[in-house]
Write a protein that binds this DNA or RNA. Structure first.
Lengths: 192, 192, 192, 192
DNA sequence: AATGAATGAGTCTTCATTCAT
DNA sequence: AATGAATGAAGACTCATTCAT
């Protein structure tokens, strides 16, 4: 017998993401997905129980991959300000280079698929953990405002998300000058 | 022969908006819409050629009706900081009390319906005009950072949008303490 | 608007029965049914929620029609023996002339559709009521064995069902001589 | 190279019979059958060309194995009445304890699988031979009605089949009192 | 011979749109 | 203009059968 191809699940998920980016979550058709992935329709149903299950799996899959290298290039010896700057830049880069991820998330939360599934909030939380860690460290060092970390993370992510959207719409990479400005707004906003 | 009922068109649009907020743009079914609006299915097709036309009409309709009260309560004599605080609060309230608007827009841009429409960006821009006006005044008074206003508006709107989402997801109105904190981040970020 | 055609439901049920007789319950396809009934596929779903609902409805429909004229030609003044003979003959005729009914029932009870549905036993019982009535009268007149009526009805129906099957398989109507014999076995079996 | 495993074929047939009893002939899925039998899907196709072949094989298999013990416990010295009573009891027991047989046969004849098969009626007839033998003896001894034996056997089997069904549906074994009653109806029906 | 992943034709069901009233 | 029954193309999912290992 043919061994169950572990890579095929990933192949299907990536193909799904690509199609969703092109045609929207609502436009995803199982037959298209199968054809694009180079498998038969039935094969998709070997790996995923049904369409909602596929979408839910795609969600957790992207969650794990989207924010995975948020800490890239950050040194433990970096001062808090530098760490936050690097991480913010990573976050922006991630969102700019993989706009599909956010595009999917936004659609998913508004879709009929969202309510149906039981997905651990924990997973979602853990992805943002590195951000919380630095915020806490900054507060401990009395560098960052001593307020609810959830609120700070919300505001900072909001700025970066909107910035990423802007980059996407204008289709122009952000200039170094603009990035410097943006980070100064971010940092002045959260520092003590 | 009764004339084409203007109020009925509005009724259908408002019903559509409500349903889209509940079930998503993709989940909107013409039969549901008709039933909820209290008319027959065929009647919807008297006022709108087809589903894409309905959605496009809803888009322009909302564009004209959203963000309308951004300047409410603002006095010309208020100092810049107060004006911005009031306007930010208005913006947040608007987004929190009328989440349908953003919910619709977010979905619309990602949907297959978007490609089909020919609508001027200009209209959208004008809604944000009061924000630009105050930013420029603040810069003239050397109170706000002397940088690209687009960037500032982007970052500020990003913060407020994310905050509004938070309010919606937790279904808890924002506390005064949190609002004070949020505005301090916003203001410290943009002030000179 | 077109008024909802009351006869269409019956048309679909009768068409379904015909197709099931030809191809078996498992062979019934909704598209075939629609085509044969001369309506669109979707129309079937206006009158019946789904396939199981259609089958369940067909069951109660046939139940009501199958044993409806069991008492045809029976006079209140007939003696018990004559009443039973007439009713037995009616029952046999019914089963012979409408073999589809029994064919459907037999398949229905064994099918995956059966378990799913909630159908009142009461309905089923009431169809056999005329038989029970006569049995009770016969017992009251001390003409029929004083035993559990359920058992008597079971045995008598068993004889007649098998006889009907025989008629169907041989495709020969039962001779008067055979009927006389059959009824003598039936009557001698239940009489005191 | 292992030889074609005779026991495995029987295992598959018995598993098929069990599943058909539970879910109906139409509900039998080859994948379920394989799993329940503890073999791979493909293995089933080594022993049987396809689903119709499997069903046809099951039919002849059951024909040979059912109704086997109809004469168990019957002594040549028993009077006709006792022989018939014992045989009727055997028949009832057989049908009650092996409802799968009748369940399968009833469905098989109605199914699309039936048309395809070429099987001699003769084989079926021979199983009922012992019943015919006793009936003839009873008629020779002028104890049983001097009528067409086919008709008598039909009626008697009809009673017993219906009784067996009753037992199955109520899931209660028949009481001795009920059996006595049932046999009295049977015997009074056929005796001179 | 045995395995079970893969296949894809075949079904059920939905829903935007039409049309007779 | 209004109605809602009817339409049928389109899409999700199943399952008998094949085939690479």
């Amino acid at each position: 017998m043919r061994p169950r191809d572990e890579a095929k699940e990933t192949l299907i998920l990536n193909t799904a993401l690509r199609l969703i980016t092109q045609t929207g979550l609502a436009g995803l058709k199982m037959a298209d997905l199968a054809r694009e992935a180079g498998v038969a329709t039935g094969t998709v149903y070997i790996y995923f129980a049904d369409k909602p299950a596929l979408i839910a799996r795609l969600y957790t899959y992207l969650l794990r991959h989207s924010l995975s290298d948020l800490t890239a290039g950050i040194l433990a010896t970096d001062p808090v300000r530098v760490q936050i700057q690097k991480m913010a830049r990573n976050y922006l880069t991630e969102n700019t280079e993989h706009p599909e991820y956010n595009a999917f998330f936004e659609q998913y939360f508004r879709s009929p698929f969202y309510e149906e599934t039981e997905i651990s909030q924990a997973e979602e939380q853990s992805a943002l953990q590195p951000i919380y860690d630095i915020v806490r460290r900054g507060q401990a060092e009395t560098i960052i405002k001593e307020v609810n970390p959830d609120l700070l993370v919300t505001l900072v992510c909001g700025m970066l998300n909107e910035l990423a959207k802007q980059v996407l719409y204008t289709k122009q990479p952000i200039s170094e000058a603009d990035w410097t400005t943006a980070f100064s707004v971010l940092w002045d906003g959260i520092k003590r």
